[in-house]
């Protein structure tokens, strides 16, 4: 790149300014929500949504938290997403070991089937799953949602991880085999440690995706004490029973965990990429 091209011309400042404006527009909804979540209802009704809050009023957030048992919803979401992420990473590794490293016959077709299973609309599975889970006594349990999403996320993980592992350095596998290590030992002692950055990224993806799921959890988690954060908030929103400050309180509480994930996600992703390139 020439020195010329690196110069900050007026044109490049114009690009910078317009991108900053865009970034502000993207973030504005979050700012407005945060401002209104800390207003008193009286302040809101007299000054509207655009005024700055006079002080930090946390009662609205606290009331909402207690009313919907937000703590319980967080526990449900963490339990479900965490279990799915762990199980789906484990199963994806097992599958990818057979498909990517073992190169089992028919692996391309198997991978395509897994990918299709992940992309198909969940509407096509929902009624039979609803019917089966009722028969099996699993309907309205967190376990049913864990089982279903473990299958769906594993389908994607297998597709991704199999292509990653098919490029796994063969010399390492050979060396381990000459040392007398068996299949399982090679998987556990060689393949898993070396692929750890990728597995970390996959774990974070599975966790966030499962956390954000709405359709199947809405159908399967009907009772209040089993609901996840998005389902509880979505159902409340659908009932149109919340006033403006409660709505913003609910949105703020829903945004906060996502921001935490976002920061972790940024870190994992950057680290995953750096480790990959250092190899």
């Amino acid at each position: 790149m020439t020195v010329m091209a690196r110069r900050r011309t007026p044109g490049s400042y114009a690009v910078l300014v317009s991108l900053i404006v865009l970034a502000v527009v993207m973030l504005l909804p979050f700012v407005i929500i945060a401002l209104n979540a800390v207003k008193t209802p009286a302040e809101y009704s007299s000054h509207g949504p655009l005024s700055l809050p006079k002080g930090v009023y946390l009662q609205g957030l606290k009331d909402f938290w207690e009313r919907v048992d937000f703590g319980g919803k967080l526990v449900n979401s963490v339990l479900i997403s965490g279990s799915v992420a762990v199980l789906a990473v484990v199963l994806s590794v097992l599958n990818a070991y057979a498909l990517g490293i073992g190169r089992v016959r028919g692996r391309v077709s198997i991978m395509v089937v897994f990918l299709l299973a992940n992309t198909m609309p969940q509407e096509v599975l929902v009624y039979p799953l609803y019917f089966i889970s009722k028969k099996a006594g699993l309907y309205d349990t967190r376990l049913s949602v864990v089982i279903i999403f473990t299958a769906i996320q594993t389908a994607f993980g297998t597709y991704l991880l199999s292509s990653v592992l098919s490029a796994f350095p063969r010399e390492l596998l050979e060396a381990a085999r000459i040392d007398g290590a068996g299949r399982l030992r090679i998987l556990w002692r060689v393949v898993v440690p070396i692929s750890r950055p990728t597995l970390g990224v996959l774990f974070v993806f599975f966790f966030i995706w499962t956390w954000n799921e709405f359709f199947l959890p809405l159908v399967f988690l009907v009772s209040n004490e089993n609901q996840t954060v998005p389902v509880a908030l979505g159902v409340l929103q659908g009932q149109k029973m919340m006033d403006a400050t409660t709505t913003s309180a609910s949105a703020l509480l829903g945004v906060l965990p996502a921001i935490v994930f976002f920061l972790i996600f940024q870190r994992t992703l950057t680290r995953g990429i750096t480790v990959g390139s250092a190899k």
Binding site: P29, L233, T247, G254, V255
Partner: peptide, 9 residues
């Protein structure tokens, strides 16, 4: 990264 339920609200 936001659940759509939250963005929708």
């Amino acid at each position: 990264v936001l659940p759509f339920a939250v963005a929708g609200i």
